[in-house]
């Protein structure tokens, strides 16, 4: 069966099942009435509406422009796919994945991301293991877990004393650490865990520039303004982590610094905080100041533990 035939059969099956759902013969009148009602309101209180509309248009245009301009580097694009692959295959939430930091390397098969949990047992063994995702140039990402070969019964029980932690234990850990403030699990946060508050991306490719803080970097005429960088960062974070418009409004962009790579390229390093579904999200974005490309993006789940 060809793809077109497959689609046709699909549509027929749906249409036969939903035959009871028919369009409304008066829909045009309802739509026209709604539009007209909106226009009449506009005339009735012209001055007030113009002010509100201008504010809305200003807000809309900045968000829309930022969204339209989103342009991810190959690494940042692949990272999004890698995160989705882990979440889809292993059932981790985005918040749980925020307990992991990632490294990336280029291989013949594509970009390989390694997500390593910041939570380890006191004896150093990695209870949550590592998730490794290969994102090929073409085709689907393939995710694996360092505990794929282990008996699932070990971690599926949700037992916090189990030597392997799956999604259930990670969620419990997040809950206890965040809400109770004290935790007595036999785990420590890894000493070398990368802090999202001060992003220090590792040089992952031979050609990748090493980031250095250049306090005297001066804004160039070709550079994005700080305001544009902030808007782009919010749009990129909203897009990457599938956040809502409300989340975007609540997001606190608390730092936006101009820095330079060793090659002299200007970048905006942006840090943002969001209280999301009961958890602290610390996020960062690195933006090419000239092209607006999202060079790197990351999120870590925080808490008060």
């Amino acid at each position: 069966m060809t793809e077109q035939q497959e689609k046709m059969r699909f549509r027929e099956a749906i249409d036969h099942t939903l035959i009871g759902l028919e369009g409304n013969p008066f829909l045009y009148q309802r739509v026209a009435a709604q539009v007209e009602k909106g226009e009449k309101k506009m005339k009735a209180s012209f001055a007030r509406c113009i002010v509100i509309a201008l504010i809305v248009v200003m807000c809309m245009s900045t968000v829309a422009v930022a969204a339209m301009m989103l342009n991810y580097s190959p690494e940042a694009s692949a990272l999004k796919l890698a995160m989705e692959a882990v979440m889809d295959k292993y059932g981790l939430s985005q918040t749980a994945l925020g307990l992991f930091t990632h490294d990336v390397r280029a291989t013949d098969e594509g970009m390989v991301f390694e997500f390593r949990c910041d939570v380890v047992a006191v004896d150093g063994h990695e209870v949550a293991g590592r998730y490794i995702v290969t994102v090929p140039e073409k085709g689907e990402p393939a995710a694996a877990w360092s505990y794929d070969a282990a008996d699932p019964a070990i971690w599926q029980s949700g037992d916090m004393d189990a030597p392997i932690w799956g999604p259930v234990q990670l969620e419990t850990f997040l809950r206890e650490r965040t809400h109770a403030g004290t935790v007595d699990y036999r785990v420590n946060i890894r000493d070398d865990a990368v802090s999202a508050a001060t992003p220090t991306p590792a040089p992952v490719f031979d050609t990748a520039p090493v980031w250095t803080v250049e306090p005297d970097v001066v804004l160039d005429a070709n550079d994005l303004s700080e305001e544009q960088a902030r808007e782009l960062a919010v749009a990129a974070l909203t897009d990457t982590y599938r956040l809502t418009d409300d989340d975007a409004l609540q997001m606190d962009v608390f730092r936006c610094d101009m820095r330079a790579s060793s090659e002299g390229d200007h970048q905006w390093h942006v840090n943002a905080y969001l209280y999301h579904d009961g958890y602290d999200w610390n996020m960062y974005v690195i933006i090419d100041a000239v092209t607006g490309e999202i060079i790197d993006i990351g999120m870590q789940t925080g808490g008060n533990g």
Binding site: F10, E12, A13, I14, H16, T17, L18, I19, G20
Partner: peptide
């Protein structure tokens, strides 16, 4: 499912539900 869905073949409504 909405009214008249039972008029569809069983495999058709199964596909609709699966989707």
């Amino acid at each position: 499912l909405p009214d008249r869905a039972q008029e569809a073949r069983e495999d058709e409504s199964a596909l609709t539900l699966a989707v």
